[in-house]
């Protein structure tokens, strides 16, 4: 069986198609563990996983925490406010101090793009990027790939529409890389103010500002959370107008394929970027994504510690 020859999981760009497939295959096998009455295997007994979250997160941190515990690793959570950050210690110093306590894996969530690279370069421990600034969120992309693959049987040839705040979204960036790498075609859709320069050329995706066009014949529609603060940066005039142009409701869904999957990385703004009936409707696989998240993170923890 192939192994993952990587110390760190920093972004989707540095993962090969084979490595992504390995992670997804491993995650599929991990799912069964979470269905057992005793949801625990001894695989990572004696391993220490530090969940280092500089930015608030409920879903991702819980998911990593559960993944670590189901594999019998010891997991410790540090949050931005509880750690040395407030005392003015640099990221690198904090990380070196953590390293001195000999953890095996550091899972980092940070508001600065590129922060995990600083750690990966200077630490012996494996670094897993749990979201850095606007840059990357590889475990989210992997869980999205897994969820879609489970429902569609393949990723090859699928049409994926990613709609919302592309500019500020690490989920969008990682999924543009992940889905195109696995043979799907991606269209991103947002008002021009929320599409960063050079999006099409740097990611090999199509760009549109017209939602029906993005959704047309889509196999997958992925909605992104829109932050209300974006109004103050003049990205769009009002939530009302944003919702009318870029919100997913049953009318827009008509343009997609009849078996379209609706996804959202959460947390969702009900009634803003997605209508409640679509979020809870038959096409929605939003909660499957959360389930896949635990499996994917179990697979990654297992693989980076040399599992095979």
């Amino acid at each position: 069986m192939p192994t993952l020859m990587k110390k760190d999981i920093l972004d989707m760009t540095s993962l090969s198609v084979e490595e992504i497939s390995l992670i997804l295959d491993t995650a599929e096998r991990m799912k069964e563990i979470s269905e057992r009455p005793v949801k625990k295997v001894p695989t990572l007994r004696g391993k220490t996983v530090v969940l280092f979250f500089y930015e608030p997160s409920t879903r991702t941190r819980t998911s990593f925490d559960i993944a670590a515990k189901r594999l019998s690793a010891d997991s410790i959570s540090l949050s931005g406010s509880a750690s040395s950050v407030v005392k003015g210690e640099t990221l690198l110093d904090t990380a070196r101090n953590l390293e001195a306590m000999k953890p095996d894996i550091i899972v980092l969530r940070h508001s600065s793009s590129g922060a995990p690279y600083i750690l990966a370069k200077s630490l012996r421990a494996s670094v897993i990027n749990a979201g850095d600034g606007m840059h990357a969120h590889p475990t989210q992309s992997l869980l999205d790939l897994l969820t879609v693959r489970e429902h569609k049987g393949t990723l090859e040839g699928l049409r994926v529409a990613i709609i919302g705040d592309i500019m500020h979204s690490r989920v969008a960036r990682s999924n543009c890389v992940g889905f195109t790498k696995m043979g799907a075609s991606v269209t991103v859709c947002a008002p021009p103010t929320l599409i960063p320069k050079g999006m099409a050329s740097s990611y090999g995706v199509s760009v549109t500002h017209h939602m029906p066009e993005a959704v047309a014949n889509a196999d997958v529609i992925m909605m992104l959370r829109i932050q209300k603060e974006r109004q103050t940066g003049f990205f769009f005039p009002t939530e009302r107008e944003y919702s009318r142009l870029y919100g997913l409701n049953r009318d827009v869904l008509e343009y997609a394929k009849s078996d379209v999957l609706v996804m959202h990385p959460g947390p969702i703004n009900r009634g803003l970027e997605i209508s409640p009936d679509v979020a809870d409707g038959p096409h929605s696989i939003i909660l499957d994504q959360v389930t896949s998240g635990v499996a994917v993170r179990m697979a990654i923890l297992y693989l980076v510690t040399g599992g095979a």
Partner: peptide, 9 residues
């Protein structure tokens, strides 16, 4: 530009 978009900066 492209590099900033790729790096998420």
């Amino acid at each position: 530009g492209e590099t900033a978009t790729r790096l998420g900066l």
